[in-house]
Amino acid sequence: MAHLTGRVWKFGDNINTDLMMPNIAYESPPSEQPKFVFSANRPGWSSQVQKGDVIIGGSNFGTGSSRPAAKLMLGLGISAIVADSINGLFLRNCVNFGLPAFSCPGVSALFEEGDTAIIDYPGASIRNKRSNDSLSGRKLPQSLIQLTLSGGVVPLLRREGYLKE
């Protein structure tokens, strides 16, 4: 797989799912939900994000609920999330929706906002284009990498005839 390259947005520690997907999104059509991402902690951010951008997070990124926040990130065009550490349930959601994400201790110190990140998702490594510094993170099992890159659970189940069309 080719490396992902994207502009970096930085977020801190304990960024939770309720910030990513506030309750108002539950009442909105799927196409409108991404605009509510981080509206409580960073108003206006969702309109600045461009397709291919990358989130670099602090520790315990994605802590909290099962709400399908990864889907909203994809809707915004986010191509990958790399954080000092990622909450286990959020990471599962990323895999199941098809959003590349991995934990990489120290990554938040490697980047400033606006830097360009070059990411090898299967290899769980990341490089700062500006400084040329790089780090390796926590690799996911090959099967989960494949599941992510093929779009998550839905295409798989659809192919196997489990879903109503």
Partner: peptide, 29 residues
């Protein structure tokens, strides 16, 4: 799917919140 599934750990049960897409997979498989 719900994140607080760990509640059932009180009963010596292995229980973990998994999210709605993983539950879709489990409902099927």
């Amino acid at each position: 799917g719900d994140s607080h599934t760990s509640a059932s750990g009180a009963f010596n049960c292995a229980a973990r919140g998994l999210g709605m897409m993983e539950m879709l997979y489990i409902l099927c498989k």
